[in-house]
Amino acid sequence: MAFGAILDHFERISVPPRSTSDADQKEQKDAQKSKESEEEEENGSNKFEWPEVKAAPGEHALQFSYSLWFSRRSPGNKTSSANYEQNIKIVGSFASVEQFWMLYSHLARPCDLTSSSDYHLFKLGIKPMWEDSANKKGGKWIVRLRKGLASRLWENLILAMLGEQFMVGDEICGAVVSIRFAEDIISIWNRTSSEHFITNKIRDTLKRVLNLPPNTILEYKTHTDSIKDNSSFRNTDVFMR
């Protein structure tokens, strides 16, 4: 569909608001290259192939296509980057609002998942891994939830992401809901952890779409730090409004 091709083009040339410095321009170039270079890196034994999706005529196309991933950690199994990648599987991919609901409505809700399970909803072309070229300079906002709230807040978060409510160019990479023993955690990942204008805007949108009370604690963690301590949710930077 011609319309799809045009959107694809816009996606590549649309840029975050303040992108005039040389450093920013370099980063954008890197981001554009990310897909290719990643494929080169993986040209070895198991080349990863992204599924092809497009909005059918009559469907409501999304600004970006997405893949939904699922992972479940077996208890006591310390995660290394390699076995994390083996553990994580694409459940489905979509390019339109209709295709999203088809998939979403036929999956267990986060609250019904067993402990140590995660859903990761990421833009097509970005793996839900710290090391992915789209993520490596980025970070994530984390909201810890008491048990019982994850399904509803996850739905609100991903609807806001799919509907482009964050308004930060193509900074958003994806969102994760993590079901754990004593708490559930939702997070949203962005490309550039050093751009505080962008991370603040994401935080404010997050508070609005999740309808978080003013005293809610939000935490930010860069993926570089996550790689250093091999942990998603420890040693975060804590923010309170």
Binding site: L7, S14, H60, A61, L62, V97, L159, G163
Partner: peptide
């Protein structure tokens, strides 16, 4: 050209 949908529409 950004395609924006609000929650109610979705």
């Amino acid at each position: 050209t950004r395609i924006i949908y609000d929650r109610d529409f979705l």
